[in-house]
Amino acid sequence: MKYTPLLAALLLAQPVKADEIWVTNEKDNTVSVIDVDTQEVTHTYETGERPRGIIFSHDYSVVYICASDSDSVQVMDPDTGEILHDLPSGEDPEQFALHPDDRHLYIANEDDAITTVVDTQTRTVVAQINVGIEPEGMAVSPDGAIAITTSETTNMAHWIDTETQELFANTLVDSRPRHAEFVKDGSELWVSSEIGGTISVFDVATQAEKAKLEFKIKGVHPDKVQPVGFELTADDTHAFVALGPANHLAVVNAETYEVEDYILVGRRVWHMAFNADKSLLFTTNGVSGDVTVVDVADRKAVKTIKVGRFPWGAAFRPTE
């Protein structure tokens, strides 16, 4: 069959669009784009060196990528994979968080003990804030008032007032904090500690620690249970926690802070992203170089998708 010019034009104009999961491949300098419906990689785009953190703008028109070893945050057109421009990010950006204003990025500069605040519109550095050694985890509260940086060697969560861009509190957590999230409408801050093997739960209003999550997997030595990334389910009732070299996800009851289940996934699981209705979870498995698809209701791994080398960050992009 021959395509008529008209049909070809139609195909071009209306490509079949599906929801996507974007995954950064730390050792391949690429991002893999996974089609949520077919659960296959549809595109692989080149990035700067050692891509880690990845986040979409609120309207999904651009995707921001921390190219750690290129010392920049890259802004990519997600429709074409074209790098539109770089943002000044400070040295070695590892993770970042987008302020609810959709404009300011809070970036952890791992090699410099600094958090950099960048205005994505003017493409300028608005502030640099001194934090502990090896900052990594970043979060901004839903109301935009507080930004958090966690520092891996100083073992603290640093609380930044986004109005003044100054620290107003520093709270100790267990060894090597990696990831921070505001949950439950911003009333709680969760911080995972990789070497400590815990997640500290803080009451945001008082910055006081109110609970500590611990993990125990039969047959895996506690030293190897190293929580890194985590995400909460749609109604904030449960958290899925990546346990690094333990090769498992923990399913935690977010009310009682008790672990309910462990799910075997790929090797050295880092981070994760949900699909649109949060029925599926996609985890990045650094050592095995793949993504595990988890059925959230059944709490079972249903598929493994091969991506690039050392997949690290993950982000969701809906159909337009």
Partner: peptide, 10 residues
Amino acid sequence: AVLCVGGMSA
């Protein structure tokens, strides 16, 4: 300067 801001809980 950070010290002046306070808020230390450790």
